[in-house]
């Protein structure tokens, strides 16, 4: 049952892999971008879940905000959360750039299906 004890990690990895699969398998550019977002969201979850300090006996450590050793107990490390705030911003920017490029592609090619774009390129050259 040890493996099941890591279920939150399993969940994160599953989400990451679903996203990863989507990026590779989808032929629609927008769907690829959405999958990329999902992929990154899985990583956020991974970080957030790693910040949780909780063991069955309830004595995991002292939250950084306390200096009193008596306040030992389960706590959430804020560092990964803070990191993820930045990472979310990065992820959103990435999606913004991706969507902007996809819009341009739609204007120039009239499609956002990868197969049709490749076909159009082949016709050009």
């Amino acid at each position: 049952m040890e493996s099941f004890g890591y279920f939150n990690y399993w969940l994160a990895i599953v989400i990451i892999m679903i996203g990863f699969y989507g990026v590779i398998a989808r032929r629609n550019l927008l769907k690829q971008a959405i999958s990329l977002g999902l992929f990154q969201t899985g990583v956020f979850l991974f970080y957030v879940t790693m910040g949780v300090y909780r063991s069955p006996d309830g004595t995991s450590g002292v939250a950084p905000i306390w200096t009193d050793a008596a306040k030992t107990g389960p706590f959430d490390n804020p560092l990964p959360h803070v990191l993820m705030l930045t990472a979310i911003v990065v992820s959103v920017s990435t999606l913004a750039v991706a969507v902007a490029i996809i819009v341009s592609i739609q204007r120039k090619y009239g499609t956002i299906e990868e197969d049709e774009i490749l076909e159009a390129d082949k016709r050009d050259s």
């Binding site: 550019l29 490029i101 592609i105 120039k108 774009i117």
Partner: peptide, 8 residues
């Protein structure tokens, strides 16, 4: 226009 696809 291929620059767009390359960039994506």
């Amino acid at each position: 226009r291929r620059a767009l696809v390359a960039s994506l």
